Measured scan of single mutants.
Amino acid sequence: NKFNKELGWATWEIFNLPNLNGVQVKAFIDSLRDDPSQSANLLAEAKKLNDAQA
Rank of each mutant, 00 (worst) to 15 (best):
K5N: 12
N21A: 06
L43R: 03
Q38C: 10
E6C: 15
F3R: 07
V23Y: 15
A46Q: 01
I29S: 02
F28I: 04
E13Y: 15
F3A: 12
A54Q: 11
A40K: 12
L20H: 00
K2E: 13
D30Y: 04
L32K: 00
K48N: 06
N50I: 02
A44W: 11
L17D: 00
E6F: 13
A52C: 10
E45V: 07
G22V: 12
F28R: 00
N50H: 02
F3D: 11
W9E: 09
V23I: 13
Q38L: 07
E45T: 09
K5E: 15
K5L: 07
D51A: 13
L43P: 00
P36M: 05
N21T: 14
K48W: 07
L32H: 01
N21K: 07
L42V: 14
Q53N: 06
N50V: 01
A54K: 08
N50Q: 02
W12Y: 09
G22C: 15
N50Y: 02
L42K: 06
E6A: 07
N21D: 12
L17S: 01
L49Q: 04
V25L: 08
K47V: 07
L17C: 04
L17F: 06
G8P: 06
N16K: 10
L49G: 01
A27S: 11
K5H: 12
V23N: 12
K2S: 13
N4V: 08
W9H: 08
R33Q: 10
V25Q: 06
A40Y: 11
Q38H: 05
S39Q: 07
E13D: 04
D35C: 09
A27M: 13
A52R: 14
N41D: 07
K47Y: 13
W9D: 07
N21E: 05
Q38I: 06
S31H: 08
L43W: 05
V25N: 00
I29V: 07
A54I: 06
L49D: 01
A40G: 06
V25P: 00
L42S: 02
N41A: 13
L32N: 00
K26A: 09
D35W: 06
L32P: 00
L43N: 02
W9S: 10
V23D: 12
G22F: 14
Q53V: 06
K2Y: 12
K26R: 11
R33L: 14
W12A: 08
D30W: 05
S39K: 06
I29Y: 05
K2L: 11
D34K: 14
I14L: 12
K47F: 06
A46E: 00
K5W: 13
N50R: 01
G8C: 15
A52E: 11
D35E: 05
N4D: 14
F28V: 01
K2P: 12
D51F: 09
K47M: 09
D30P: 01
P36V: 04
D30I: 15
A40L: 12
N19V: 01
A40W: 12
G22E: 13
P18E: 06
N4W: 15
T11S: 09
K5Q: 14
E45N: 04
I14S: 02
K48I: 07
V25K: 15
D30H: 08
K2N: 13
A40V: 10
N41R: 14
P36N: 02
F28E: 00
G22H: 13
V23C: 14
V23R: 11
N16T: 08
I14D: 02
L32S: 01
L7W: 12
F3V: 10
E13L: 14
W9K: 10
K26M: 13
K2G: 13
K5R: 07
I14R: 01
D30L: 10
S39P: 02
S31G: 07
D35P: 01
P18F: 09
F3P: 09
K48H: 06
L7F: 11
S37K: 06
K2I: 14
D35T: 06
S31A: 14
S37G: 08
A10W: 13
S31I: 10
T11H: 06
E45M: 14
V25S: 04
W9I: 10
I29H: 02
D35K: 08
N19S: 04
A52F: 08
G8N: 13
K2M: 12
W12F: 09
N41L: 12
E45R: 11
P18M: 07
Q38P: 01
Q38W: 03
I29G: 01
N1Y: 03
L49F: 02
L20N: 00
G8K: 14
G22P: 14
S39R: 07
N50T: 01
N1D: 13
I29R: 02
K47T: 05
A46F: 04
L49I: 09
N1G: 12
D51V: 08
L43T: 03
F15Q: 11
A40T: 08
L32V: 04
N50E: 01
A52T: 08
K47P: 01
E45G: 03
L17V: 00
I14E: 02
D35F: 08
D34L: 14
F28C: 03
D51L: 11
E13F: 15
A54L: 07
K26L: 11
K26Y: 11
A52K: 09
W9P: 06
D51C: 09
D35A: 05
A44K: 10
A44H: 08
Q53F: 05
A10T: 12
V25F: 03
D35H: 09
N19K: 02
K26N: 05
K2W: 15
Q24D: 02
N16C: 13
A44N: 08
Q24Y: 02
L7C: 12
L20P: 00
D30N: 11
Q53L: 10
L7D: 07
L49T: 03
I29P: 00
D30M: 12
Q38M: 08
N16I: 09
S37T: 09
L17K: 00
S37Q: 07
Q38R: 12
F3C: 15
E6W: 13
W9F: 08
